[in-house]
Write a protein that binds this DNA or RNA. Structure first.
Length: 224
DNA sequence: GCGACAG
DNA sequence: ATCTTGTCGC
């Protein structure tokens, strides 16, 4: 069913991931006082990716700017290689932003990845901006015991991310460093953006809704 | 060989 | 992620 295009070299892709993984900065290289935060998400129809980004005011989480981008899909979903499917659409939509957000939340993992280079790292390293991976499902690593709301995600003894459990949810959110942010700061930021009604960070939820609405509008137009 | 496997 | 109607509950 899901076939990798023959013009795509999986080994080369893994080589890219391993090489770029060395460029991930796991320290705070962002303003100490955040003014804005962005959320990104992608929805799909046929062979089209609909990417949406929303920039919110960090304090009141109100939307400041939104952008969309439509990109043809040329790669299937393959666990550990999500970047090669989604990054083109995300990079495209980020280019359209008129202002640079202080930090960007990505729906996927950061360094909590078999090659320490998930989608959030991919975007962060290529764009050289602070990013945080916020995923709804685990991809890699072992989740240790919860202490209060959080549990460490470990690769052997190394902490590669955190699982965050909301009081209202059974399933946790998986947080990991994308780029230019420490894990502690990433947790603080995601906690700040947590919603009681949705099991993800608010900026990502906004982007998710925008991408879906855009996609449905497109489908309607095509039918006419 | 078997199970796991972001969106 | 996507294919999909009604239905349960606040």
């Amino acid at each position: 069913m899901k076939k990798i295009p023959k013009n795509f070299d999986v080994k080369k892709a893994r080589g890219i991931q391993s090489a770029l993984a060395k460029r991930v900065i796991k320290k705070d290289v962002l303003p100490s006082s955040l003014k804005t935060i962005a959320g990104v998400d992608v929805s799909y129809t046929q062979n089209l990716a609909v990417a949406a980004v929303a920039i919110l005011d960090y304090d009141n989480l109100e939307t400041i700017e939104v952008q969309f981008s439509l990109v043809k899909i040329c790669f299937p979903y393959v666990p550990t290689l999500l970047s090669f499917r989604e990054a083109p659409a995300i990079l495209s939509v980020l280019k359209k932003l008129k202002s640079e957000p202080d930090v960007c939340l990505i729906d996927g993992h950061g360094v909590a990845h078999p090659y320490s280079f998930g989608l959030a790292c991919h975007i962060g390293v290529i764009k050289k901006v602070p990013t945080i991976g916020v995923a709804k499902n685990k991809l890699f690593g072992e989740v240790s015991k919860f202490e209060h709301n959080t549990a460490k995600i470990k690769d052997n003894s190394e902490v590669i991310g955190l699982a965050l459990l909301k009081s209202t949810c059974r399933r946790p959110l998986y947080i990991s460093v994308g780029n230019m942010v420490s894990l502690d700061k990433a947790l603080e930021i995601v906690k700040h953006c947590i919603s009681n009604n949705y099991r993800t960070a608010i900026p990502i939820m906004i982007a998710h809704k925008l991408a879906n609405r855009k996609k449905h509008n497109l489908v309607k137009r095509i039918k006419k």
